[in-house]
């Protein structure tokens, strides 16, 4: 729940991370999450069930067991539900539509209630604890290049993974959803078992990728040599041909 409180606005996360993060290291993360979780649980479950039956049950079944229209989410866990709802990938307007990132359909309280309900359905993963501000950029970069860059690209711009699937760009990925994605492995993405330190490091580097230094000017190179070549030809060469045309015009 730590991240749930602190995530938006981002500034609050930094404050909480600084104070609570230090405390969490002493008391132990398990205690913290369990303790914070119990407070809202009873109230949320009823609201969550109501929202679930209204918005999710037609595809995922009344107890998350799945239907021909949608997979079982019994073991999706809090992490899976939170990721899907917070990134707007769920709910889908129609079962046949592709999952794409959108503004979330529910507000913060509704998401928390739904997440609590889905988590109660089975033994899915909890929402991972992640504090980007305590992460180490250099270690995060190493983890990112070794595990994430193959699909999401070294610059985080995303790209195809074949078969019509696209690894999305990470420009909107916040630390919480990044951590959830690694735990859950949503869609075609594989799951990872990063420890808490690794998640902090990785989240820190993904944050860095949102605003890396661009000392060289406009960052068109985020899609690499394809954009560069396009510009070289359709800006560079075209301009230079025009310059040659002007230079070589018949003297008067």
């Amino acid at each position: 729940m730590l991240a749930a409180v602190g995530l938006r606005p981002y500034g609050a996360l930094v404050l909480i991370a600084a104070t609570v993060g230090a405390w969490a290291l002493i008391v132990g993360p398990a205690t913290l999450v369990a303790g914070a979780g119990q407070v809202n649980q009873v109230a949320s479950l009823d609201t969550g069930r109501a929202l679930y039956l209204q918005g999710c049950a037609s595809c995922h079944g009344s107890a998350g067991q799945g239907t021909p229209n949608g997979p079982s989410i019994v073991d999706a866990g809090a992490a899976g539900a939170d990721f899907e709802l917070r990134t707007g990938r769920m709910p889908l307007a129609a079962p046949s539509l592709p999952e794409v990132r959108q503004p979330p359909a529910y507000d913060e309280a509704q998401i928390e209630a739904l997440v609590a309900f889905v988590a109660s359905l089975g033994n899915g993963p909890a929402i991972p604890d992640v504090v980007a501000s305590v992460g180490d950029l250099a270690r995060g970069r190493q983890i990112y290049i070794a595990n994430c860059a193959a699909c999401h690209g070294a610059t985080g711009a995303g790209g195809t993974v074949g078969g019509g699937f696209v690894a999305p760009g990470l420009d909107l990925a916040d630390p919480r959803t990044v951590a959830e994605a690694t735990v859950v492995g949503p869609g075609p993405m594989p799951a990872f078992a990063f420890d808490r330190q690794q998640l902090d490091d990785l989240a820190a580097y993904v944050e860095e990728l949102h605003h890396p230094p661009h000392p060289g000017g406009l960052p068109v190179a985020e899609v690499g040599p394809v954009a560069e070549g396009f510009l070289a030809f359709f800006v560079g060469i075209v301009t230079l041909v025009a310059v040659a045309r002007w230079t070589g015009r018949a003297p008067r």
Partner: peptide, 16 residues
Amino acid sequence: CPVGLYRASLHSLICP
């Protein structure tokens, strides 16, 4: 090249 892309749900590896 390193065959780095993995679509876990389809169990397919793709070379970028």
